[in-house]
Amino acid sequence: MAKTPVRFTLNGSETALFVDGGANLLDTLRRGVGDLSPKYGCGQGTCGTCTVLIDGEPHLSCLTLAETVEGRSIETTGGLSNGADLHPLQRVFMENFGAQCGYCTPGMLMAAKALLAKNPNPSREEVVEAISGNICRCTGYEPIIDAILATAGQMRGRVA
């Protein structure tokens, strides 16, 4: 099958590879590039654990054609921390016990990151709205919502 070349930046690094026609971004990141941080949950756009940021906007990578990200900037959970230095969201998720099995966590983190970039002072309802496409089986959501609100507070404190 004819392959299509695609170039994009992944967590700030230039990335180029050939993809099959119709290949989705999730498969391309996981198998093509080897970034295993976005997870495969349903493969049909209903669980949210594959969420990545494309030019800062949250997208379901399982439903995104790899060819469409040509020239764009992709962010995944794999790029959140700086070495051992965790992103505030990651740290506060840990402190708030915002994960049990952790399978939903990459999607939750990326959805939260997109929210806080746009809205540093979200209400509880806005947090709920931002993660409404993400299913969590374990936590009952409460600790995740609390973690996102707490991160927002901490990040505002740091900027101010």
Partner: peptide
């Protein structure tokens, strides 16, 4: 037979506990 039609509460349905 998938998450589209299998009903589960989401973050908006959290109940104070």
């Amino acid at each position: 037979d998938d998450y589209n039609s299998y009903l589960m509460p989401g973050a908006g349905d959290v109940v104070p506990h």
